[in-house]
């Protein structure tokens, strides 16, 4: 009983699937074509919004692999975001390598770190695990705040990207788009694999999963490592787009809060949930900035939404719709 929700009519599936493919293909083509329409009103704003949206889709989808599928909540996942950013940034500053090339390296480095961290902390369960992720975040923060080589808490500047100003957002846009599609595809592949099945089993009942012959420790560590990869990648890209590295940009807990919140709003443990959650929360944030300005009330709004969703729709948008059998076929990616 790992996928109790999967009771939709089986014979109808192939057709729905193909029409879903068409719709998603069109959406993707529009996203790819968007930067070519320079005449769009607020062109730069639209591109920037795309960059931010794709980044969050990549981060939330990745977080969901461990936080949703495996059921282990990480409140310190932005360490990979920051470490990815710093690694690529430093390679640019000290070796002149472009972050667009080294982003993958950053991702792989984070993957390896994820294995190391997982080896230590997956001795803990439930609340103790969550606590260890917060502690990891704070440790890394202290480390970067005090590491003079990378500028300590003041940070370090990076050279600007060598592109003409009017096109400057385009490479970042595509890099983030690739990361978003890649991370969602990764989540999709995991969800449809035996590995994903095992993760869901251990999320439901770890003891039973163990009895069923699943090496839960290896599964959890693998999930944690995989969920670190794209977070590191987008961290590298984002740092380059800011051309500035500073601990407070990457290592504040608000970044982790957003990943958790987006996944929960959209529907933890579903493939489409993080995408839906990222879109909804970014829309809310934009609205909140319009209404309240860029003030501290944004974090209040974040908290209120988190509480509200947990109390009233713990399954999130995708999960709740599915429970009532009203999930549109184009969002049924599980």
């Amino acid at each position: 009983m790992t996928a109790p929700t999967d009771t939709t009519g089986v014979p109808a599936r192939p057709r729905r699937r193909s029409s879903r493919g068409v719709v998603l293909g069109v959406v993707l083509l529009v996203a790819i074509a968007l930067p070519f329409f320079r005449g769009l009103p607020a062109y730069n704003y639209v591109l920037q919004l795309g960059i931010v949206l794709f980044m969050w889709i990549a981060m939330t989808s990745s977080w969901n692999i461990v936080g949703g599928f495996a059921g282990y909540i990480s409140l310190g996942h932005n360490v990979f975001y920051g470490i990815g950013g710093y690694l690529s940034g430093l390679l640019l500053v000290y070796a002149g390598w472009s972050p667009f090339a080294t982003a993958v390296l950053a991702g792989l480095f984070c993957l390896a770190l994820g294995v190391g961290f997982g080896l230590v902390t997956f001795r803990a369960h439930g609340p103790a695990f969550i606590i260890s992720t917060i502690a990891l975040l704070l440790m890394v923060t202290i480390f970067f705040d005090n590491w003079e080589f990378v500028g300590g808490s003041n940070g370090i500047s990076m050279p600007l990207p060598p592109f003409p100003v009017e096109w400057i957002k385009v490479p970042f846009y595509y890099a983030m788009l690739v990361s978003a599609v890649g991370s969602v595809y990764l989540a999709y592949r995991i969800a449809h694999s035996k590995f994903g099945l095992g993760l869901r089993a251990l999320a439901q009942d770890e003891t039973k999963a163990e009895v069923a012959g699943i090496d839960t420790r290896r599964f959890k560590i693998a999930a944690f490592a995989l969920s670190a990869f794209f977070v590191g990648v987008v961290g590298a890209v984002w740092a380059y787009s800011l051309s500035y590295l500073r601990p407070t940009i990457f290592f504040i807990i608000g970044v982790a809060a957003n990943m958790v919140l987006m996944a929960i709003i959209g529907g933890r443990g579903t493939v489409a949930g993080p995408v839906v959650g990222a879109i909804v929360l970014i829309a809310v944030n934009e609205l909140s900035v319009v209404l309240f300005g860029a003030s501290e009330l944004n974090i209040v709004v974040t908290g209120v939404i988190l509480l509200g969703v947990l109390l009233f729709f713990p399954l999130g948008i995708v999960g709740t719709l599915r429970e009532h059998g009203k999930l549109p076929a184009i969002l049924d990616w599980d």
Binding site: I73, T302, L307, P314
Partner: peptide, 25 residues
């Protein structure tokens, strides 16, 4: 809730964000 422990962590996390935001505001 079957995942009570985890729910409480997330809920109080939200609560902490609200308090922090209000104090800062």
């Amino acid at each position: 809730s079957p995942r009570f422990g985890e729910m409480t962590v997330l809920m109080t996390f939200g609560l902490a964000l609200i308090i922090e935001g209000l104090l800062a505001f």
